[in-house]
Design a protein around this nucleic acid. Structure first.
Lengths: 78, 78
DNA sequence: CCTCTGTGTCAAGTTAACCTTACATAATCC
DNA sequence: GGATTATGTAAGGTTAACTTGACACAGAGG
């Protein structure tokens, strides 16, 4: 999924490894998310967006992203 | 993780099964999230919050929840 | 040249989010 | 009493998020 991780991380002068330490995952996990190898869990997404004082939707760009698997899009209600 | 799923779902007059169809997962998956058996994936959280015209943070209550596993809390930066 | 840092990627293992199938319960309706 | 609907739960399987360890490469500096 597209995201602003690299941009926001560099704006704080953080390395992938440092960001990983801040949110409690390995540097490979941060790298894989930045390079769109896999999607973060919801808690990891939350922890990351907190580091950047942002909301999940501000950091992870759902609208602009294709989903890899799982079913149809949300159909809404109203 | 604590969430307002049941409350919001019932306010729309949806069953667990119907909500599951709307977002493309089984009714058991919806039930498991409502009863806090497991956490949704980030895409499922997004699809669900879209049904309720809300943000992820409005539907899933991170601040009030304990995390089950994975590492330390976010430490922030600034 | 060698070393150190930061990044990208691969392999193999663990864990948890999802699946289907199935059974139990309570409410409703015929 | 029997059928239907909505919910809760459990077993067993698949998949992907994450781990550690390792290797490659570019840039900076001794």
């Amino acid at each position: 999924m597209k995201n602003r991780l690299k941009e926001l991380r560099e704006s704080l002068g953080l390395t992938q490894e440092h960001l990983g330490e801040l949110v409690g995952v390995s540097r490979q996990a941060i790298n894989a998310i930045e390079t769109e190898k896999f999607e973060p869990s919801i808690w990891l997404a939350y922890d990351i967006c907190k580091v950047f004082n942002s909301s999940i939707e501000e950091v992870f760009l759902f609208e602009e992203s294709e989903r890899k698997s799982r079913a149809q899009q949300s159909k809404g209600v109203g």
